[in-house]
Design a protein around this nucleic acid. Structure first.
Lengths: 214, 214, 214, 214
DNA sequence: GATGAATGAGGGTTCATTCAT
DNA sequence: CATGAATGAACCCTCATTCAT
């Protein structure tokens, strides 16, 4: 078999992680074996272990990448407008986009990633993932704060619990919309996006300064 | 080994599914092998396949059973009060209780329910359970409708999308609260239940008739 | 593939352990894979794990068996005569026979079997193995004691250290004779057994009551 | 990475074998991978194969080196005294020291030396080491002969078989003492060295000229 | 000469499932 | 009907070794 050209490490890591990503997307993480990934990437199984310590690290890197992307999406969303409601919507759409690109990571963010402060054996990726998570929180924190400052969001909100509630609710909503898309279309005659819009708007009411006209 | 007394199929199915349920709760579905279940139930591994086509079907039946329980919880919750807000809260607590008892099914409800109900062969006495999801929807439908009728819920809500949004959001919220319990406690100095209460209340605002004082 | 007839468990265990024994004999324990054993025994690899928890247990059982055999050999050796020297020789021959049948266990007895009193996770086999070891010690203890009593062995010997020294020395001698057989034949013009006899006799002098004529 | 300065082969071989030796000592031969060695030595894995045909050869060279050291130890031991018993003891201690420094090589010497010296390609400066085993034998040969000459060792001994028997017995004894150290301490209330002394002395009796008072 | 890159072959182990009895 | 017995296929991972550059 022809030996590979000398390319920077990163290229191979990218090749592998891209293959993995695709398969994870198609079949889920658990149902994707290192064998599958190797085949998809065009490497031998053993080679995978040259570039990644193990499957966990591979997943970790992918999660990290996805969170970075999520951060970018949200940052961009916030820059699109100064209007709070507008910005809120953009964030929601950012989340939808994110979950369409990284459906399993989306799930993981909700499930697995139990942040373990004590755990001493953080993988480097986990540490970074955690930090990006915090930065995303910051972004949202300021978004809510600004909204309160300019009188568009109720002033009696506690910011942190609000952010977290939104996290949980929005991701739950998006996930349900995705998984039950067909059912929704049949029963409500709404497309997934229409349904989501409805849900997003509904949720916004819960924080909107009362008396304000939409 | 002495042959088992001839007992109705349903008894064996129950024995097996009960054992499975216990193990699923303790170790999760993926980490419970058919072997484990057989041992716990006191049957031979092969016998499991007499009563269930495969692991998937076994899971399917359990999911259904859990939904029956959820139905009961919600029904009970609605009977506790006539006040809409009160009833809403009771529903939320019912969901929390349900997810604590059946954490994995809860997850599955949100995920693409892999269990293929069509191909599962139910016993006659199990068949009726099949429509359980719809009955839960009915319950909620009437709850919202009643709330609108008596002026406690905004009249411009579309009931079905509202119900579904709540499903997604509440389950997302509960799941996040469960998985990030520790984090929440450290960052917000709120217990899981306090955090959830905050979230539940927040969400209620989104459907509450405006102008109403809480 | 034709299903096996229903035979008692023990038959299969025996089949497997026999195959393993043969392979261990030919290639050593480390170089024998579960795959090899399965093939040799005519079972599938997975079947091995039906009858043995893992490779370690398989080895453990074989070691136990071999020690049982060693015990039998020594017991028999001691019954062959009343003369101390004669009995000593028989013991030596028993050891030779044992090492020819179980060369790798012989090695293990010297190396691996660090008796670990503290270790709580004794495999059952390990416990039994340990006990058989003790019984073998008993046998030898009485042999030496008897020899002293009837004035054929020096009375100033400390029995336990003597036994242990003999264990180490005899096994070392036998092992060397086995591994260097060719070399011995070329350089000394002695067969392995002749060489061993020389060594055995030499060692006997070290405990023989002085002044006694051989 | 900067290419290495051009240094004589022997330097690289030494670097590599030193690294290997350290690791072998720490983790055993089997548990030390070529990867480990490369890292420890600061070379690339592939480079190891420039200087050594394979792992086996690397081990072979190390074994040889260790035998050189053993030779030195024994030579030194013999020079310490003129008294036969004294010299015998020093030899024993030399062996103990050797086995503590090179535990695995010690084992290999007793086992069927798998290292194929014939097919190993030695550097010129390593070639001379090849006959080291014979030279050790010579040393011992003269020791016994001298002992006989001065009437301290029984004159009816055959020298070569005696030497070999000692080899086997002493190494067996030392190995057992090492592996069963804990057991010995508990059962005999002797330290490893005390036990060994007892065994060494016992064995000496077997060659000592009778009638001699110790 | 030195190495980065790659891999074939194999390690032990688990598990859902099947089938003759 | 119930099961003991058996297995194929897969799992993640490791390692000594090779070869083009």
């Amino acid at each position: 078999m022809a030996r590979r050209k000398k390319e920077p490490q990163s290229v191979h890591r990218k090749n592998i992680s891209s293959a993995a990503e695709q398969l994870f997307f198609k079949k889920g993480i658990e149902n994707t074996s290192m064998n599958d990934i190797a085949k998809e990437a065009g490497y031998s199984k053993a080679t995978l272990y040259v570039y990644f310590k193990n499957k966990e690290e591979l997943v970790g890197v992918l999660v990290l990448e996805s969170m970075q992307k999520l951060y970018d999406y949200i940052k961009l969303a916030l820059e699109k407008s100064n209007d709070t409601k507008e910005r809120y919507r953009e964030i929601c759409y950012a989340l939808v986009k994110y979950q369409e690109e990284y459906p399993f990571y989306f799930k993981m963010v909700l499930e697995k990633l139990k942040v373990n402060f004590e755990s001493t054996h953080f993988l480097p990726e986990e540490k970074e993932t955690f930090l990006i998570g915090e930065r995303i929180n910051d972004l949202l924190f300021h978004f809510v704060k600004d909204g309160i400052t300019c009188g568009e969001i109720r002033s009696d909100m506690e910011i942190l619990p609000t952010i977290f509630s939104f996290w949980g609710m929005l991701s739950g909503l998006i996930q349900l919309a995705t998984n039950k898309e067909e059912y929704i279309e049949q029963r409500m005659e709404k497309s997934k996006m229409e349904f989501l819009s409805y849900g997003f708007d509904m949720l916004y009411n819960s924080i909107k300064m009362q008396g304000e006209k939409e």
